[in-house]
Design a protein around this nucleic acid. Structure first.
Lengths: 115, 115
DNA sequence: CGGAATCCTCTTAGATACTG
DNA sequence: CAGTATCTAAGAGGATTCCG
């Protein structure tokens, strides 16, 4: 199996998800639109600032759509674009892998630290 | 489609690849063992220090195997473990997505910046 | 060749306070 | 509610030097 990833351009796009929060946010939008505060609660440990920054970046990159409803109090929703949905599909196996290999990784760490 | 990623444990494992270099290194080991200097050349832009640090972490997490050949000058090879190979398979769709959506993302950025 | 150790800088990101 | 602005601590990471 060969996977190519050397290009400098790919670096730029892979950086999309190679950060602390993007994958979590995208995953949390998997079953429909969410509001800012909902995401803040759902994405464990994210600060308000980092949520804002990451959402803006994902919006800029065409991954999600930000909709401001002109009401008082403010109401803003975020949802995946088609591009964002395709990213979610591409990332799903990796997320599943993480879910399924918690213990193996933990065991490897313990063994390494013991050695 | 629903993807669950909220657990704090998953966070820990997902952090494995949610950094600047891990996915690149794993991808570069996809077609067999590599030496330190080979990886340094292949992984564009990585410093010696970050390559060492990242390799150590991936080794600790059971993703790759480090083998020291007792010769002079030193000869060290890195290769994926079965766990690392399974990670590569899980990450492959995401890497392919990055490869395939460079232009869409670039276009989205241009549109956003123009607006 | 494949690092380790040190230094130093730049970025990241949390906390806090304020706002339409 | 959904941010923005500012400050600051912590850490990432580059450059350099040294070593078996």
């Amino acid at each position: 199996m060969e996977v190519t990833v050397s290009s400098c351009d790919v670096r730029e796009v892979l950086d999309l998800v190679a950060d602390k929060w993007s994958l979590f946010i995208v995953a949390n939008l998997s079953d429909g639109p969410r509001r800012f505060t909902e995401l803040k609660r759902a994405v464990d440990g994210v600060s308000q600032r980092m949520l804002t920054v990451t959402l803006r970046r994902l919006e800029r990159d065409g991954i999600l759509l930000r909709t401001v409803h002109a009401v008082m109090p403010p109401h803003v929703t975020y949802e995946l674009t088609p591009l964002g949905t395709s990213l979610l599909h591409a990332a799903a196996p990796l997320i599943a892998w993480s879910n399924g290999n918690l213990e193996q990784v933990a065991a490897a760490r313990a063994a390494y630290d013991a050695g």
